[in-house]
Design a protein around this nucleic acid. Structure first.
Length: 819
DNA sequence: AGCACGCCGACT
DNA sequence: GTCGGCGTGCTC
């Protein structure tokens, strides 16, 4: 690497290295002479770090500082960079903006196969075996030793095996007693690339012996096919493996290994030809194309469901490829990737890579390498794909840009949609956000000229939008249980739909059997032991389950307060609704789609198949049904209770409600038949419900934006949430309050419009999740820069506030989840 | 994060 | 007296 100093002086030999640790600074290393030519930004370097060795990432050259000793790089583990140099500024920007260590940002971007940090491995010693055999130790110590009996394990493996029984102190204790031994490994255990054995014809028969029938068949096949994986041959010729080695000895064939890419794709897709774009599609595509190659531009494409946004994306991607550029398409969740992937593979064949967390480690590794090497220039993926190692990006597409799934809620808490726009800006290129129900934020950006607005106003083939009927749920106040929500209007419409041989979709945004089970004697809700949250009854397993931590216990567990075994279920979930519908329409076939029924791979596809063939007449589902899937035969959509998301203590509650209602309504009548929507609500006059009824985004936006402005919410301000959590309730409260005092103190006397407003600390609405107590502080400011600086000054830099070990403070910049 | 150093109480 | 508990600080 030519590491020139900034003033163009002589080449130096120092590099800036990010380490994969929670440290908010980078480190300087010398590069020894023999490695100097090979080192480039984006490479991993093996470095000494304190007493440890680990693999860091080269960010670029830097000047040596004289005030401390600089250590030298030990080795270069790979011949090539693991991410492109042009991503360095992107990573640095992300780290600064989200107040997250750069090294961890990079770790979170790379496939886990490339993020080898040094890991401690624990193994049992002989005296440990003796201690275990004697059985004289405390039970928790015995359990630790048992876990190590079948071989060494890392700290994480142990945590996985021991769950709550894992204690750092015990681990230490075992080491002190020399019962276990700690060693370190640097190489990552996943291997990365996959190799496969291949056979190829070689042509000569060394000893001239005649070949058996089977050998001849194999040979013929090889001559036809050329290089063939041994695995494939084994499938067509059972027992081929043996014959192959014999054939190799005879010199008839050559056996060798070759790196192969693991195939993450589903079934093959028949190629299609690009259709002629409609007038609107053409106009939108043309506007974006004319900006391509002319620097940074961001577009918001508002197109109602079924208006053909995907075709615009395909068109743009084709143009990018033609111009030697690449393209990135983000889709909110894995379930929707397969649809997008199919459309792209039909058009572009195997010139498409996919990236999402559902891939195996090996598959992710292979996709990453294919993209990194430039072998594929089209990438489709979920939010993490915003870090795809593409170079020369032409366009970054974010489909369904309003979807909250773009926000990552742990580790690095980023918004993939925002990062896609940022990558476009840093790469001087084009971002295209698409949605039928754009986010307030993006629409505001159009109003303020940060984005360029585009529209696809009509549905393809001019299908009419569905007719929406609002039903006031106060009408059925006198009824109980599920019947409360099965109003005469809805049931009548369902009956008509069934008689016409058409399909109904019922939407209820809550899983399980009942909203919340309560004790029939003392009235106490059944709550989760770890989360301070109402549990939900699941009839199929006869358990009460917590939807936050996943814990469950038998539904006949007595009330924790009074010990009564009589628990009654209030409210309604999809499971109970399904049962009620089955009772009401015993002859109809009813199916349910929610996280409980779609957990298994392929379950969604099966359900969709059932809808397509008409085997399912009524589909009951949670918000999963609102997302982009195409249901051609559904003509009636029933929204059981539109208000569920409205009562959330969150400034985006109205926005989410409007979006989900508009999206679900859009599911009606996509075929050649007109659709109908029955929208049931307790708040028929709430603006997010009336706007959804009229499919009127403008009216919704106008009212919502006024609310945001008057209460200083985004997009008029930036927010950062500090989320304090820990196992000790008092310690968490104390620390949250200390933080609050510190921030208020720092704000004293500052009276500019850029001042930071400190809200809280408050106990989080969900005050306990998975055994951890939670408090939070909200910071608001007109300028995100001021906000970031304040936080980093107050408790990221050197000598400031350091939370105690057992308390965790997560910094959530632009938070979505305020529960 | 992980590893040192350093300072206190209960054991041979 | 020292072994081992964990609080604090540093890693180019």
């Amino acid at each position: 690497m030519h590491v020139n100093t900034k003033d163009g002086g002589p080449a130096g030999s120092c590099i800036e290295v990010a380490v994969p640790l929670p440290l908010h600074q980078t480190f300087t290393y010398k590069v020894p002479e023999p490695l100097l030519d090979a080192v480039r930004p984006g490479m991993r370097v093996r470095i000494p770090f304190g007493r440890r060795r680990l693999d860091g990432y080269v960010l670029g050259p830097c000047e040596a500082c004289n005030d401390r000793e600089i250590k030298a790089v030990l080795d270069l583990p790979d011949p090539n960079p693991v991410f492109p140099e042009e991503m360095v500024p992107f990573f640095k920007w992300v780290a600064d903006y989200y107040l997250h260590p750069v090294g961890e940002v990079i770790t979170c971007a790379l496939p886990p196969t490339l993020t080898g940090c040094d890991a401690a491995v624990f193994s049992i010693t002989e005296s440990g075996q003796e201690a275990l055999a004697s059985g004289s130790q405390a039970p928790e110590i015995q359990r630790f030793l048992e876990c190590l009996q079948n071989g060494p394990a890392t700290r994480n493996t142990l945590k996985g095996r021991l769950k709550d029984a894992f204690q750092e102190a015990i681990l230490q204790h075992l080491q002190n007693h020399r019962w276990i031994l700690k060693t370190r490994v640097l190489s990552n255990p996943y291997g990365g690339a996959k190799y496969e054995r291949y056979a190829a014809p070689a042509g000569c028969n060394k000893n001239g012996l005649p070949l058996s029938r089977k050998k001849q068949d194999i040979l013929d096949a090889l001559h036809d096919l050329g290089d063939t994986p041994v695995r494939t041959l084994n499938r067509t010729f059972p027992g081929a493996a043996r014959l192959l080695s014999s054939l190799e000895k005879q010199g008839m064939i050559r056996l060798f290994t070759r790196p192969v890419y693991r195939d993450p794709f589903g079934e093959p897709v028949a190629p299609d030809t690009p259709p002629i774009l409609t007038g609107d599609q053409n106009k939108a595509a043309h506007t974006v194309l004319s900006a391509l190659g002319r620097g940074y531009h961001a577009f918001l494409l508002a197109g109602v469901t079924g208006s053909g946004k995907t075709e615009v994306y395909l068109h743009l991607a084709a143009h990018c490829l033609q111009r030697g550029k690449s393209a990135l398409v983000l889709v909110p969740e894995i379930a929707l990737i397969s649809q997008m992937e199919k459309r792209f593979r039909a058009r572009f064949g195997d010139r498409v890579a996919i990236l999402h967390s559902g891939l195996s480690k090996g598959e992710r590794h292979d996709q990453w390498i294919r993209i990194l090497k430039g072998e594929v220039r089209l990438v489709i993926g979920a939010r993490s794909a915003v870090f795809a190692p593409l170079t020369h990006i032409g366009v970054l597409v974010v489909d369904e840009e309003h979807d909250p799934a773009y926000k990552q809620e742990k580790d690095l808490r980023y918004q993939a949609r925002d990062l896609a726009v940022l990558r476009a800006r840093l790469g001087d290129t084009v971002a295209l956000l698409g949605s039928a129900t754009p986010s307030i934020q993006s629409h505001y950006n159009v109003r303020t000229r940060k984005f360029i607005g585009l529209e696809l106003p009509s549905r393809i083939e001019a299908r009419p939008l569905p007719e929406v009927t609002v039903v006031d749920l106060k009408e059925t106040e006198h009824r109980r249980g599920a019947r409360r929500f099965l109003t005469d209007t809805l049931v009548g419409a369902m009956r008509e739909t069934l008689e016409k041989g058409e399909q109904t979709l019922l939407f209820l945004n809550r899983r399980g059997f009942a909203g919340f089970p309560v004790c029939a004697r003392c009235g106490k809700p059944v709550t989760c032991r770890h989360c301070d949250i109402s549990m939900t009854y699941h009839k199929a397993d006869h358990v009460h389950a917590c939807h936050y931590c996943g814990d469950s216990r038998p539904a006949d567990t007595p009330c924790r307060l009074c010990g009564s075994e009589r628990i009654k279920n209030l409210g309604l979930g999809t499971e109970k609704l399904e049962a009620a519908i089955k009772a009401l329409f015993p002859k109809a076939s009813v199916a349910r789609m929610d996280r409980d029924t779609t957990r298994k791979k392929g379950a969604i596809l099966n359900l969709l198949k059932g809808l397509k063939t008409g085997a399912v007449q009524i589909l009951v589902g949670t918000q999963i049904v609102a997302k982009g899937h195409d249901y051609p035969h559904i003509t009636l959509v029933g929204i059981i209770c539109a208000d569920l998301s409205l009562s959330f203590p969150d400034f985006r509650a109205s926005e989410r409600t409007f979006q989900i209602l508009a999206q679900v309504s859009g599911r009606a009548g996509r075929g050649d038949r007109p659709g109908r929507v029955i929208l049931q609500t307790f708040n028929p006059n709430h603006f997010s419900i009336t706007s959804a009824r009229d499919q009127n985004f403008k009216s919704f936006y106008d009212q919502e934006i006024r609310f945001r402005k008057s209460l200083h919410y985004p997009p008029y301000t930036h927010m950062v949430a500090l989320k304090v959590s820990g196992r000790n309730r008092e310690a968490v409260r104390k620390w949250a309050q200390a933080l609050g005092v510190a921030f208020r103190e720092a704000e004293k006397g500052i009276r500019t419009p850029e001042a930071t407003e400190v809200l809280g600390p408050i106990e989080a609405p969900l005050s306990k999740i998975a055994g951890r107590f939670r408090w939070q502080i909200l910071l608001k400011s007109r300028r995100i820069g001021t906000l970031n600086r304040r936080i980093s000054e107050l408790f990221l830099k050197g000598d400031c506030l350091k939370p105690p070990r057992d308390i965790h403070v997560a910094i959530d910049v632009d938070p979505y989840d305020l529960m």
